[in-house]
């Protein structure tokens, strides 16, 4: 394993297609990332097929709608979309706002009042009889169902995962 394939926090490394090419033991493969979006949210592999997936630092996955030679040392490459450290992979707010309109499961639609609390960063009791864990929260605006961000559903409560800088009082 050459030095330039290891993470130094500044370098983007394309996710391997072959598990044997992983540069650390918990690095996901491209297939695992595509399968996760499909299994968790029903966002099909076809929809994300033109993306290349990259890791910068351990467990932070970026989606790039172009390609170049790996590794590459730059400030950003597409969008940070997924955190894969730990047992439960977590999508980013920006990723679900970009891809979430394609989701077919683990989507919780909120009323206008619930949506206001959600984007203000508040936790709230919301009825939900599906899986616990990370959900895509949506609401209706101008005739569209639009993703708001990621909520963590546990014990009858939807915990807003909107980052502080993106919270709004609307």
């Amino acid at each position: 394993m050459s030095d330039d394939r290891e993470h130094d926090g500044q370098t983007f490394v394309r996710l391997p297609t072959d598990p044997d090419d992983r540069i650390h033991e918990d690095q996901p493969t491209r297939d695992e990332v595509l399968d996760w979006w499909d299994e968790r949210f029903g966002i099909g592999r076809d929809y994300l097929a033109d993306y290349t997936f990259w890791e910068k630092g351990r467990g932070k996955v970026w989606a790039f709608h172009a390609d170049t030679e790996s590794p590459v040392r730059v400030e950003g490459l597409g969008m940070s979309v997924l955190r894969t450290r730990g047992d439960h992979w977590k999508p980013t707010t920006n990723a679900v706002q970009r891809f979430g309109h394609r989701a077919e499961r683990n989507v919780i639609d909120l009323t206008r009042e619930q949506a206001e609390a959600f984007v203000a960063g508040e936790d709230q009791e919301v009825p939900w009889d599906g899986d616990w864990g990370y959900l895509i929260a949506t609401h209706d605006i101008a005739g569209e169902t639009e993703p708001l961000g990621v909520g963590l559903y546990l014990h009858g409560e939807l915990r807003s995962q909107i980052p502080k800088g993106r919270r709004r009082d609307l």
Partner: peptide, 17 residues
């Protein structure tokens, strides 16, 4: 730049300093 690009859903941009 990065925060504007991400809020607007841009996925084809590579940022260099």
């Amino acid at each position: 730049l990065r925060s504007n690009a991400e809020r607007l859903g841009v996925t084809n941009v590579a940022v260099t300093r």
